[in-house]
């Protein structure tokens, strides 16, 4: 080969095309398309296994014991909760180690900001991809719920954006935390103190009314609680209570605050 073909002169015109943040989204989508097998369990199989184990297994015990929850069979009750919990799972797992990897281990974010992209593009690309992926998973989940006859009305389709919003309300603060961590051990502590309690107490498996009053008050603060409430209301068709807009607003607040601190965290780690 002649090295002339490698010449770099005369190519100084940058192509103007896709906005830089879209290129960042494309990057994440591409990496996912090559490595999706590794997340098939946590991202897709796990929610359905939970659905069968909780809904059918424990459900048979619950239905026998107390005839369901809030007037519906336990499977119907737990399914929307698990939808939101799946968003928690994906939102957290995709915003913790992958962010640390980009910042610290493989340092791929540093590769990105050496190109026309800047740190803000990287953040948008990260969160936008989570929203896209979670919407896809939520769509599959809601479709399965439809097949099992767990959807009360066509309104249930709105559970998909509701689920995606839950994912964002969780992943943006998780990203903000991840940008301020240095190793996987401290991330593990974050899981135990933040994610696990949310998963177990935010109303996924039982109504909040079963909790002592003080604990219920604490649980209401969690972003996942709003996500569960919203998804459940939409799939069980408990009527569009105006308080649901509070839930939406509250999740947007979590997203916004998380976004702000993610941005400052990214700047601190990437721009220096």
């Amino acid at each position: 080969m002649t090295l002339g073909t490698l010449s770099t002169r005369g190519s100084s015109q940058p192509r103007i095309g896709w906005p830089t943040w879209v290129r960042a989204v494309w990057h994440n989508a591409f990496v996912y398309s090559k490595t999706w097998r590794s997340s098939i369990v946590t991202g897709l199989l796990e929610p359905f296994m939970y659905l069968v184990a909780m809904g059918v297994g424990i459900g048979s015990l619950v239905n026998k014991g107390s005839g369901g929850v809030d007037g519906v069979p336990y499977l119907n009750f737990v399914a929307p909760g698990l939808l939101a919990a799946t968003m928690l799972q994906i939102g957290v797992s995709d915003s913790s180690f992958s962010v640390l990897g980009g910042l610290k281990w493989a340092r791929t974010y540093f590769a990105a900001i050496a190109t026309p992209l800047n740190y803000h593009d990287v953040l948008i690309g990260h969160l936008a991809w989570i929203a896209i992926r979670c919407s896809a998973v939520a769509t599959a989940f809601v479709a399965v719920m439809g097949v099992f006859g767990l959807l009360a009305s066509p309104l249930a389709i709105l559970a998909i954006p509701a689920a995606a919003l839950s994912a964002l309300a969780i992943s943006s603060p998780t990203t903000a935390i991840a940008t301020r961590q240095d190793d996987h051990l401290s991330m593990t502590v974050v899981f135990r103190l933040g994610v696990l309690p949310m998963f177990l107490f935010a109303g996924v498996f039982f109504p909040l009314s079963r909790l002592p009053y003080w604990l219920e008050a604490i649980v209401q603060i969690l972003p996942l609680t709003s996500g569960v409430t919203l998804c459940r209301a939409l799939t069980l068709h408990q009527g569009l209570h105006p308080s649901l807009f509070l839930n939406i607003g509250y999740m947007l607040l979590w997203f916004g605050v998380g976004y702000y601190f993610s941005l400052t965290g990214f700047r601190k780690r990437l721009v220096i």
Partner: peptide, 9 residues
């Protein structure tokens, strides 16, 4: 939480 829904077994 869930135990309260199930009752006895």
């Amino acid at each position: 939480g869930v135990g309260g829904l199930v009752g006895g077994i």
